[in-house]
Write a protein that binds this DNA or RNA. Structure first.
Lengths: 210, 210
DNA sequence: AAGTGTGAACAAGTTCACAGCC
DNA sequence: GGCTGTGAACTTGTTCACACTT
């Protein structure tokens, strides 16, 4: 790996991957950066530059082979294997996550669900018995997990994340509104719809002649 | 306001706002950019620069008045009023959204829920009668709505968004995995957890010595 | 003729560093 | 003494434009 690849580039690859999956399923065999860009609202130059960090996948005068590029991206993103995921916090949101059909099909296996409420522990959700979060630490020591999805009440987010990180989980998707602290070798993504709404209201206000 | 304010700055303001709310509720009266930065994982210089786009809210030698800055941000982001929101698509995800307690408290009123399924239309969710999406267009003409949250199956996302945009909705939060096309004067935010997982797997793969 | 790959030019965003004020 | 506000320096990211390949 000669030069460092910017994080923004990595963040765009899944977008390309998703579009190529669709094109592939529609039977398209070749596509240009121009067309990819139009579909995604990105400049063709950016797509070419992004891909060029990883290799030379296109053919001059023709474009990119859809199945070829799809395969390359799959390998780059590590989507050619399966990843073990646990969900902690099985309230309404956690249940929606646990039953979201988009994970399984993309290589993410939800192998366990955890909650703290005695009313929920032991019940079945999507064919999984909900386990007591008190057993999380011990379970992680027995079975390595790749990704933790945190959907507990905000005030418990940091505790749960600490448990995950201490047990060697290096990727966390945090659905709580609280930011969490992690060591630099842990990837964290925050999903907080309120922040999105609040940045949109700024723009709405502007339009109104604010 | 002489110069144009970068979008990245706007996107950070809700983060500051949230932290200040917390500090305010804890009774803190003054805070420095240093401390804000530590809490949020951002440099103090960036916070000062961001705020300086909107005014001079701090006092040299002391820092920022927490209630004052909170109020300023509230006004800047338009959070001093209430915003009308509709949710379209009341599956598991839509239901989780409709019952998410974080919206109401932040000035977002979910005034209607819509779904296409005859099994759902007419039922009660969180004290709201679910309406038929076929009536959405007419309803929007009668009652102006600020923000549309879209949680329908992906293949219907563009249709729903078109209906919203045609009726004058200028802010859309899209929970479907499909990107949607909108005119430039419409704000759209996409929430797609799979994209986050896929960018994290890239980094996980690197750690493993990929 | 069409479309990639890429160095170079450019634009955007971040951090520095310090004058100025409390 | 401490901390803001802000031009200037720097860094990062994007777009241009064209040589090159099919």
């Amino acid at each position: 790996m000669p030069i460092e690849i910017p994080d923004v580039v990595i963040d765009r690859l899944p977008l390309y991957y998703r579009l190529l999956s669709r094109l592939d399923s529609e039977g398209r065999s070749v596509v240009s950066s121009q067309e990819l860009g139009e579909e995604l609202g990105v400049t063709p130059a950016q797509i070419r530059k992004d891909l060029s960090y990883f290799g030379r996948f296109g053919k001059q005068g023709r474009g990119y082979s859809v199945p070829r590029l799809l395969d390359e991206l799959k390998a780059i993103l590590g989507l050619d294997g399966r990843w073990k995921v646990v969900v902690i916090g099985i309230g309404r949101l956690g249940r929606a996550i646990a039953s979201y059909p988009g994970f399984e099909g993309q290589g993410f296996d939800i192998i366990a669900l955890y909650d703290a409420s005695s009313g929920l522990v032991g019940t079945e959700i999507e064919g999984q018995r909900v386990k007591d979060v008190a057993t999380l630490e011990a379970d992680l020591k027995k079975t390595a997990v790749d990704i933790g999805i945190v959907a507990v009440p905000g005030e418990h987010a940091q505790d749960v994340v600490d448990t995950l990180v201490d047990a060697g989980v290096h990727a966390i998707l945090n659905y709580t509104p609280n930011r969490v602290q992690t060591p630099p070798n842990v990837e964290v993504r925050h999903i907080n719809p309120v922040l999105f709404l609040q940045s949109m209201t700024y723009h709405l206000k502007q339009r109104r002649g604010g």
